[in-house]
């Protein structure tokens, strides 16, 4: 495993930990989109169908379990936990996530590498992950008031995506036959979605002012 991949996984892990820290210790999910969290739970559930059938490494299995466990517990917290539930900004989190799920499913049925259930589900998860952040970005723009932990959560998620692109470039030049168009194009789309947020995040950090997004 190369350094970009490891750093990407670690920033992904940090983003989840930042979010769990906010929810678990502050008992608040203000500014967090339940729609995005539900999409991520669906992404991991459909991508890791191989978790008990194909063993790659202990690292791989443990990370998969962490991402599955954390994404479902975040959804549980936001839906079921009395205190956390109260801080959920339901009125602004109105993005219709079915509009993302259905096109991704159709696209996965049309464009995939192998027409098997596992492979189509895996491809669906790749497409869905690319756009799953949209409800969160829309919510951030609507709330105007972004707290530090929420900003850091999205920042680390974006860092994870960027590092994965560097990982693919590295693997392309170091491993024979490493060509994966579906993952690359989806990953690139996903990273570009963060570009705008990154711009405002970094400029607010540089100018030492509170992060706000333009309407």
């Amino acid at each position: 495993m190369n350094a970009f991949r490891l750093a990407g996984d670690m920033t992904h892990l940090i983003s989840v930990l930042v979010l769990l820290l906010k929810i678990h210790t502050i008992k608040s999910c203000a500014g967090i989109s339940l729609k995005t969290q539900e999409l991520y739970a669906l992404v991991f559930a459909t991508r890791y169908l191989d978790i008990f059938t194909d063993f790659i490494s202990l690292y791989n299995t443990v990370m998969k379990l962490i991402f599955l466990g954390s994404s479902f517990s975040i959804v549980w917290y936001m839906r079921r936990h009395k205190l956390v539930q109260r801080s959920y900004d339901k009125d602004h989190d109105t993005f219709r996530h079915q509009l993302l799920v259905l096109p991704c499913l159709i696209l996965a049925l049309l464009i995939h590498e192998q027409f098997t259930f596992k492979e189509v589900m895996w491809t669906f998860s790749i497409y869905l992950e690319a756009v799953a952040i949209l409800p969160q970005l829309v919510l951030l723009q609507r709330t105007r008031n972004i707290d530090n932990l929420t900003g850091q959560y999205v920042f680390f998620l974006g860092a994870y995506r960027s590092l994965y692109i560097l990982n693919w470039i590295y693997r392309y030049f170091t491993e024979p036959h490493y060509v994966h168009w579906i993952t690359w194009i989806s990953g690139l789309v996903q990273t570009l979605l963060y570009a705008d947020f990154f711009y405002y995040y970094i400029s607010s950090w540089k100018n030492n002012v509170k992060l706000t997004l333009p309407a």
Binding site: R5, D50, D54, I56, N60, M63, W122, Y164, H177, H180
Partner: peptide, 10 residues
């Protein structure tokens, strides 16, 4: 294309 190779990523 070796699609199996990719499944080692998360």
């Amino acid at each position: 294309v070796d699609s199996e190779l990719l499944k080692d990523e998360l």
